[in-house]
Design a protein around this nucleic acid. Structure first.
Length: 485
RNA sequence: GGCGCUAUCGUCUAAGGGUUAGGACGAAGCCCUCUCAAGGCUUAAAUAGGGGUUCGAAUCCCCUUAGCGCUACCA
């Protein structure tokens, strides 16, 4: 039975790399009819925040990938302490009474690799017990084997066989001096207790895994299988961080930019994994059908963003592909809340008619606001009347064309073919090219030179609005001419 | 410093001893066309460097270089 977990610690908001780890876990579980567990690793009371927890749930909810079981480490602290003392009783851990301030100086950052504090390992059990009983604070450390040349080995499903000499593993802490379990202990205990079959997490944990193997040994359980994932990094090669890279690292950036969750998931999957064929745009089910750790790469993957544009261009393209794959009804359902949030009131039936016209012209849901604005507004936003002048034409032509278009639209049938026929006929009688006819009309009704296909647009706008806007355009042209004379 | 991981177009990647090193995004150009978009076609663009092994290396091994990670009573 496959059981996997995603175990974020609530010390920041849900970050793009964490989201991907969650997704890979989820995919692996679904692919193998396994169980997906969400576990909040909140053993660090100092740094946990409710806001962070909210952000994690928020982000996961948006992704739309449900989990099957839920745990929170702060509910289980007694279990960890108990486990730590079991390891101690087995002689695989010891109390270290070295004050924190003292070790801070000559330990990490500076010089030689730190393995353990001098004298701490050699303390007799009697003295250790006595000092503890006297209330002296201590850290419980794992007693990493120092005799012989023992190597810790494990096989990673992505990175292959791993080994490390115990001589390079320090005596890491199991219990803090306040009695709380550390991440290593709590995480391993839970992985064992919850019968996790595969630990799927970021590659930054690869070096920690040697310690974890030791802990599982201390716990007397078999290690789960491991699959480490390449990290997501910034274009500058650095690990993604809020401080350095800003809001890009948060999943909410993509959500708020108008991404479809399935497109975002698709994008994240393609960072460090590929289906071994040329597919790029994939539905969730299609990914589930072929997902395996064989397809996971080892090098870190760059999320391609800039200061000006936080969105990876490929993500944007994938989003447009997913938008394009939606039915008109589905897309309308996604667009409606965006439009409503912008304070625009539109009937769903009307929006449903607009949707097909913009579907292949929007890359994000939010684009509806800029691409379809003229469908929503009563009055067009002001535009330069010079835009009404067709190519290789002049203001007089614009005037002439718009006048005859107006006349034609008074009687034309408001369907694609009716409008097409009527306007083309007008162009022919005036002796202008079709484009010279269409473009002024487009600008007149849309208020700009770039817009969806003309006839469908006119159709959706309706005769009344079209005539009104052409009248306004004629007015603009006339006053422009008057002012220029 | 020690230990570990990694190294193919700008980016995501394919090719796990024999290919003109393939695809996608992005860029440029052309076609289509009522503008834009979509679509089609085309172009530019990569095996970090050096040694081996081999008839033959992007692929296996070693070294160098570079990047990243871990080295906390954070996770």
């Amino acid at each position: 039975m496959i059981r996997v977990r995603f175990a974020p610690s609530p010390t920041g908001y849900l970050h793009i790399g964490s989201a991907r780890t969650f997704i890979f876990n989820w995919l692996f579980a679904r692919r193998n009819q396994g169980t997906m567990i969400l576990r909040i690793d909140d053993t660090d009371v100092e740094r946990n925040t409710q806001a962070s927890l909210d952000s994690i749930f928020d982000g996961l909810k948006w992704l739309g990938l449900p989990w099957d079981e839920f745990y929170r480490q702060s509910d289980r602290t007694a279990l960890y302490t108990q486990a730590a003392w079991t390891i101690f009783e087995r002689g695989m851990a010891y109390r270290d009474f070295t004050p924190m301030t003292q070790i801070g100086e000559d330990k990490p950052g500076g010089g030689i690799g730190w393995l353990f504090n001098p004298g701490a390992r050699e303390l007799s059990r009697e003295e250790s017990d006595r000092r503890a009983a006297a209330g002296e604070p201590f850290v419980l450390r794992f007693l990493v084997p120092r005799d012989g040349e023992r190597e810790i080995r494990f096989r990673d499903l992505v990175y292959g066989d791993q080994s490390k000499s115990c001589a390079d593993i320090e005596d890491f802490a199991l219990l803090r001096s306040n009695g709380m379990a550390t991440y290593h202990l709590a995480s391993c205990f839970d992985d064992a207790d919850l019968r996790i079959s595969h630990i799927v997490r970021g590659q930054d944990h690869l070096p920690n895994t040697f310690k974890h193997v030791l802990i599982f040994e201390g716990l007397g359980t078999k290690s789960p299988k491991f699959a480490h994932l390449p990290l997501l990094i910034a274009p500058d090669g650095a690990k993604l961080s809020k401080r350095r890279h800003g809001p890009v690292v948060s999943v909410t950036t993509y959500r708020d930019a108008g991404f479809l969750p399935q497109a975002y998931v698709n994008f994240l999957c393609l960072l460090g994994w590929n289906p071994k064929d040329d597919r790029e745009k994939m539905l969730l089910q299609e990914i589930v059908d072929v997902f395996s750790f064989e397809g996971v790469n080892r090098p870190n993957a760059v999320v391609n963003f800039t200061e000006q544009d936080p969105i990876d261009p490929k993500a944007l393209w994938l989003n447009s592909q997913h938008i394009y794959a939606l039915s008109h009804e589905e897309l309308t359902d996604r667009l409606a809340p965006v439009v409503a949030a912008a304070g625009i009131q539109v009937e769903r039936a009307h929006l449903l008619r607009i949707t097909p016209l913009i579907q292949e012209r929007i890359k994000t849901l939010n684009d509806v606001l800029t691409v379809a604005d003229f469908f929503f507004a009563d009055e067009l936003t002001p535009y330069d009347p010079a835009e009404l002048i067709p190519k290789k034409g002049d203001a007089a032509m614009a005037l002439k064309v718009l006048e005859s278009a107006r006349k034609a639209l008074e009687t034309a049938g408001f369907s694609h073919d009716g409008l097409d026929g009527a306007l083309r006929a007008e162009a022919a009688t005036l002796g202008v090219k079709a484009g010279q006819m269409f473009q002024p009309v487009r600008v007149a009704v849309c208020g700009r030179m770039v817009a969806p296909p003309l006839f469908e647009t006119l159709e959706v706008l309706g005769r009344e609005t079209c005539l009104k806007r052409i009248d306004q355009a004629l007015e603009k042209l006339r006053s422009r001419q008057a002012s220029q004379v």
